[in-house]
Nucleic acid binder design. Sequence first.
DNA 1: CGATCGTTTGATCCGCATCAAGATAGGTGG
DNA 2: CCACCTATCTTGATGCGGATCAAACGATCG
Lengths: 250, 250
Amino acid sequence: MSQKVLLNALNVGFIKNISLFNGLSETDKELLLRDGSIYSYLRKKPLFRHGDPIMHFYVVCSGTIRLYHETPDGCEVTTDILIAGDSICAADIFSSLGMYQTHAEAVIDATVMEFSTEWLKKTAQRFPIIAFNLLSMLSQQTHKLKTEAENQSNMSALQLTACFLQQTCVFNGFNPAGFILPYSKSLIASRIGMKLETLSRTLPKLTEIGIASEGRHIALRDLATIKQNVCDHCPGTEHCHAYDVLHQKN
Amino acid sequence: MSQKVLLNALNVGFIKNISLFNGLSETDKELLLRDGSIYSYLRKKPLFRHGDPIMHFYVVCSGTIRLYHETPDGCEVTTDILIAGDSICAADIFSSLGMYQTHAEAVIDATVMEFSTEWLKKTAQRFPIIAFNLLSMLSQQTHKLKTEAENQSNMSALQLTACFLQQTCVFNGFNPAGFILPYSKSLIASRIGMKLETLSRTLPKLTEIGIASEGRHIALRDLATIKQNVCDHCPGTEHCHAYDVLHQKN
DNA sequence: CGATCGTTTGATCCGCATCAAGATAGGTGG
DNA sequence: CCACCTATCTTGATGCGGATCAAACGATCG
């Protein structure tokens, strides 16, 4: 299933930036990092499944993790796609349910840092700033969920797809003038709540609003048109911040 | 706009049960309650508007409060309907944004207890159990949002309506064998993300799954059928817990 | 070379939104 | 008490977006 790997300097350097540790001294950070272990998961291997007792708090170091669950009629809904730097299930630990509310599995081979739930609870008590960081993380997540739910119902397939591509570009630090989709189209469709067929039909239409696509190759050609067709319909969302990031680069 | 009213014994008695204060001694609770003031808001009066700087944390004492916002094309989307005992915007206080992310207004005349944000932050530091309660509240809210977002896209108008009626019945402590809708149909439609016309057409169809409706009068006649048609499609949601509550009463 | 996976394309269908008009009810003033 | 008015709700006709079903295409792999 999973395999423990050595904690190396590179990983530590990267992981120092996780938001949970914001505001701590470097010494404290390094001390706390000693309490975690890094594991690697092969493609398609689960980190945990819905219903498992909550044992760990995770931070993604490399690769891609997918959160999903199955609907009663058997099809899988992807609720989130996580990349390096993202943390997993901080919320669930403090819920009274005591078990994971979602499946989590590696999309491509991934490494993940794990801390025990007990450790997180104790640390939150020992360092008030960590409790505060947690509150702030949860609060951000809540806001993200709200806006996403709303977009889902108010935006067309075209707009949802444009949003996703733009955010993918920014979060992964790709070049908007041309990049390769890091996920399969089935995964993307499942993430943005539409059928593969619909996504397939939608991608060519994106040229209308300034996004070129051919196979897995995407190019965000015309930011102004994108803004007009998408951002203006979802002010204040994560997507719009992503737009601003791209806009400033130019 | 709003009017300060006297803190009377009845209100205090009620408000002692708010989840934020879970685990505190009665003495501490009463002490903390002194820091809040109770205000009354008339029908349609706003508590705050999207973009206002966050000044207060609220707990609803009586009446109904609606959270909503306007879409760019001008129509209002109701994101939540709050009744006595619910708290408002605990999450927003800890986000970095510093302003409300939604409008809040009284649907019918309401009384509300208000605490300053500073008070909440300080209190969370002074009483670790309150920080923990906050984490737990946020975490629950996150879970609720997730399942709601999913239901919104996977369930039919029929199912969504059934869910809403059942939850309304339970949260308000109504008699499932017959109760009067406490909200206008426009408000309900806006809350469950459909058009008034659709809701209007859906209500008669509910007889198929054991819910009778006539005007504002609702009766949940056949719990088994409801379960089969709704709960079995949304396991683990708030709605299903509401179902269980009704089921146990019988 | 067939086999499997991921994707595209076509034809059709269904649910909900939309537009438009009518019905009911609650409230107000004469 | 009735006439009027406005808010709330119902009903009908129509259209569109995306789901569904079905088949074929292209790439990768053993």
